[in-house]
Nucleic acid binder design. Structure first.
Lengths: 220, 220
DNA sequence: CTATAATGTGACCACCAGGTCATATGACCC
DNA sequence: GGGTCATATGACCTGGTGGTCACATTATAG
């Protein structure tokens, strides 16, 4: 975590630094990020950098908390469109709101997902706890869905969680890759075409998980 | 591509080099791989390395062809268990045979998938053609499935391809991550537990794609 | 105004990267 | 033997890395 010195900094200076770091990580990942470049792009001196942070990994960890905080706030500002919504509907809403968030903070999301997926798998599982938190959320959701009778109880919970994670990540990657080519990501994400694509992906997942009794029974 | 000098080398020396390279890429990816380490681990001199290859990316490209060749041979040695098999059954067989192959060449597969997924996305799409080839294969499969009436014609082919790719990659990643923890990967992959897990994942995908007319119609 | 504490700075360090090249080795032919 | 050509070698180069530290600057307190 950043040292006290950093947190005492005027907001603008702090923002310069984290923005430079975000751009750096988004472009080069963690391993190949250069502290020298971060330093020169944020207009501070090398010495100051090491007065603020332990090292670049420390900066990255801080970005993780920034993302988590921003995302929380973003979601707090939105509300599910309808109160009586089934679990899949809620999941769909979550994914879509998540996509909106992603398009509002594309560099930050890109930086973090690049590191988490690209390098995180091979890192000594430093980010295990962050991952674990989202997994827990999904597990709760799927258990809720089973309790509601929306998903067959014989469905393996871990499997379902993995499936939902896979899709969440796949869609996120898709949006980031395709969206980066657009002039206005936000507008593109909100377009009916894009929304329809997301819907299709999610429906395929949903039907796979939902259609159960008759079909699942045959095999498990 | 490697220079002639390399191809003239005695097999053992060649193998030392590509094995060292595989281990290096599997552990460090492409960007962070060190030619110095490859050189010292394969027992050749720095100068020789550059007499064999342009640079480390050249080595990696060569590994791609190695993988492609080995995989072809491996699949040629196997045969689908039954001739009258539907497309999904064939896909399932393909995935499983692929997993067996992966567990037979874990380092090679790990090296390449690490680079392709971890860094490939952000590379200037150097590997686009390799990717394109597998995409084409899947597209043909799904079109076949539509022609056979196994999949609803209203299904978006590109979407289906993306779904199949996503699953193929997710399962592959799962096997590599979990399997690397095992003493005997091959045995673990062939175990009924693992096979069942793979089956479950694929059935969820299959039902998602298969259940159509009634369900898809509602939304598209 | 002075003394003390906090913050800022960039030259500098050791290290390792990818890549080159003059030279050495040895196989083959006349 | 001498001559030629492919192959092998590692010292060496430039340039960037993460990280340090003695010193300069600024803020705070008495």
């Amino acid at each position: 975590m950043p040292k006290r010195t950093f947190l005492n900094l005027p907001e603008e200076k702090r923002n310069n630094i984290i923005n430079a770091a975000i751009e750096e990580f988004a472009e080069y990942g963690l391993e190949n990020a250069s502290t020298n470049r971060i330093v020169s792009n944020s207009g501070i001196s090398k010495g100051s950098f090491y007065q603020y942070f332990e090292d670049k990994q420390d900066v990255f960890m801080y970005l993780l908390t920034v993302l988590e905080r921003e995302k929380m706030e973003y979601f707090k500002g939105k509300h599910p469109p309808s109160a009586n919504m089934d679990t899949f509907g809620y999941f769909r809403w979550m994914i879509k709101t998540g996509m909106e968030f992603n398009s509002a903070y594309p560099s930050l999301v890109q930086a973090i997902s690049r590191v988490m997926f690209g390098e995180g798998l091979y890192y000594g599982s430093k980010f295990a706890d962050v991952r674990e938190r989202t997994t827990q959320g999904l597990r709760a959701m799927i258990q809720q869905a089973i309790a509601n009778g929306e998903v067959d109880p014989s469905v393996d919970v871990d499997l379902a969680v993995m499936i939902m994670e896979t899709w969440s990540n796949a869609i996120s990657a898709y949006i980031l890759n395709e969206g980066m080519k657009q002039k206005d990501i936000m507008k593109w994400v909100r377009s009916t075409e894009t929304q329809e694509r997301i819907d299709k992906m999610l429906y395929v997942m949903e039907y796979g998980l939902r259609k159960t009794e008759s079909e699942f029974g045959k095999h498990f």
